[in-house]
Amino acid sequence: MDYMAVVSVGLVMGTLGRLYLLRVDYRQYPSYPQGYIVHLALGFIAAFLGAVAVPALVAKEYTAVTFLALAAQQFREIRDMERESLKNIEETELVPRGAAYIEDIAKAFESRNYLAMLTALVASTVVEFSKKPVLGVFTGAVVILLLSLFTRRKRIRDIATVRPAEIHFQGSILCIEDIQVMNVGHPVSRKIFMEKGLAVMIEPKDDNARATLANIGQRQAIAHDVAALLGVKRDVNEVDFMPLVRIDLETGKVGLVIVPMEKDMESLIKAVRMVPVLESSRRKPLKSKAGRKASD
């Protein structure tokens, strides 16, 4: 079996794996072919490195394998690259993503390159030893599916229930049920909130979820995603209608109020339920002794 077949099966499967994970999803990013090219090119390089590792070992070219370590170093740069570019455009977002969300996206992009590398490694190993390219393709596909299942993140719907909530005013203070959100001074703005505003209540399912939802980064991510999906009536000189996510300190419930472009409660709830739980916000106090005790 010549090395060409081994390497090319690994290369193709690795690149396909990267492509499979490069979908425009809830993050609305990347959105242009330039973004795809950047990530596909890097995925291709990662796949190539993964694919040559085993043939190099078999050919007793041990120095070639050390390149894998070098590559891991290089791919850490991807995280920095993503973080930088998302931070730079943060100022132009009507509703910013927040540092936690950016970090989360950057991490996901980094890990997907390792995924491409790993897929290529497994696929080329299988071809190398079984001498059957078809088997390599099959294994590669299984690895892609398994890893994408494994790296799938939780969403708000997994940790909390989302239900419609009512907006009302206590004097000039905007409230979502019993959560006081902010002081809205102008009568016209108050009227717009009452007429066009929507609110939902996010109720954590347990203490872990409560701690996660209390995280500011997580709440900002919810606000950003909802605004990105439903639109927001807001401009640089129209600051009253910033979507706000505020917590009820008594119960840990989180209220979201937004004045969307499309007043549609059903899609609002859907959007909130699909917001990913950020890795950096995820808390598990119930896993610790002290946390369990505190929750009694």
Binding site: N183, V184, G185, H186, V239
Partner: peptide
């Protein structure tokens, strides 16, 4: 008052808050 507050808020990219004592900030 409402008119002045609205204009100022637009010009300054600020938000109007009601102190409920006759003053807006």
């Amino acid at each position: 008052r409402n008119k002045i507050a609205l204009h100022l808020a637009k010009i300054l990219s600020g938000m109007v808050h009601d102190l409920e004592n006759g003053s807006y900030i």
